[in-house]
Nucleic acid binder design. Structure first.
Lengths: 210, 210
DNA sequence: GTCTATAAAGGGATAGAC
DNA sequence: GTCTATCCCTTTATAGAC
């Protein structure tokens, strides 16, 4: 959780950005209900009236923050697979990167905060899902599609297989992150990702071979 | 989400229970921050002072509600496996029951609400984890241990395998539940559980056979 | 656009009567 | 144990000067 202290020392024209950063830090740390517009204004180094000049309500500011953070945080998984490298190797690589991504502070805090607010603002949940995890699973399904086409794996339903693999990788870890339980060590996480990749490959191995 | 309308028509001596029910309905629906003690008192059909007579603070009432709901909602997964039936069949059965459990209104709302509060009250997250998902994975690992001992599966690390299987079953579904996205149909959910069970069995099949 | 000051409402928690 | 009434504080949102 990269803390952006308070009044950005740089360009004074970037007030909206300062406000968004402050909103992100506080909303993700304290939650929607527990964060006051006063606190956001103070952290951003502006007055409350200035905040309202840019975002007409607390909800709108929250939605804007979620939107910006989704676009900013997920570029890793959003880049399409071009098929040059070995799909199996690529799967192993994705496993490591995805697990590390999952345990990062921002993704956990974002999910937590969106989940908390989603029942009151379902639109928010949809925006979050489609611009983040929903996109990631589509990208990964593309990779599995290639593996299937080349015959190295047997995957009749790539989208479901993608969901299954990403879920395996989240495992117990994401749940523990969500409820603020201590995380496993880095070595354990690496071994977990490796184990998941190999089990997945076995589960979807072509029936002929092996 | 079984709504318990308002003042329980029955025994008038059960005020604490009425308060807990009201707290559950409102906390799980609106979240901790957005629920007022006034609203809880009104829904329970008592005065606010009575609420404070039983629970000294909003946080204490919240913790009591979580504790009660965990004990009430999870009996299914908490019953140990006694080893009479075929472990493989038992795994298929658990798959179906677990997925249906996961998409239930209460478990989703509980997780959502606890996750939202956990960063401010980590103790709450621990209590929830250990009395609910943490217990479930231990129970399932016991079943896998039996399958391993009988040689029908090859599972060197039953606890990790349990995490993996339960995670597969949660798949994309739990995430969608958390952010209030529409759920798949009952048929799709059944097929999902079945597919997960078979893939899991393949991933952990003994190397000799197959 | 930005500030200071304030209005208007609602929240958690308690006092005191019964 | 339970209620009514209230204190005191924080919150969202706005008015008006610059």
């Amino acid at each position: 959780m990269t803390e952006t202290p308070a009044p950005a020392p740089g360009s004074r024209a970037a007030k909206p950005q300062q406000i968004l950063n402050a909103a992100r830090d506080l909303f993700l740390k304290e939650g929607f209900g527990a964060t006051s517009m006063d606190a956001i204004a103070k952290r951003a180094g502006v007055s409350k009236a200035t905040v309202y000049a840019h975002y007409t309500s607390k909800e709108e500011l929250f939605a804007a923050m979620i939107d910006v953070e989704c676009r900013r945080t997920w570029p890793e998984l959003s880049t399409p697979y071009h098929g040059q490298t070995d799909p199996i190797e690529k799967i192993r690589e994705v496993a490591q990167r995805y697990v590390r991504f999952i345990v990062g502070g921002y993704p956990v805090a974002l999910l937590r905060t969106v989940a908390a607010e989603a029942s009151r603002t379902p639109e928010l949940g949809r925006v979050f899902y489609e611009s983040a995890p929903g996109l990631g699973r589509l990208r990964f399904a593309e990779l599995l599609q290639v593996a299937h086409a080349r015959g190295v794996l047997d995957i009749p339903d790539p989208l479901h297989a993608a969901d299954t693999f990403l879920a395996m990788l989240r495992g117990d870890i994401q749940l523990r992150c969500l409820v603020c339980m201590p995380l496993p060590s880095d070595e354990v996480i690496t071994a977990h990702a490796k184990e998941c990749a190999e089990r997945f490959i076995r589960a979807y191995a072509p029936k002929a071979s092996s």
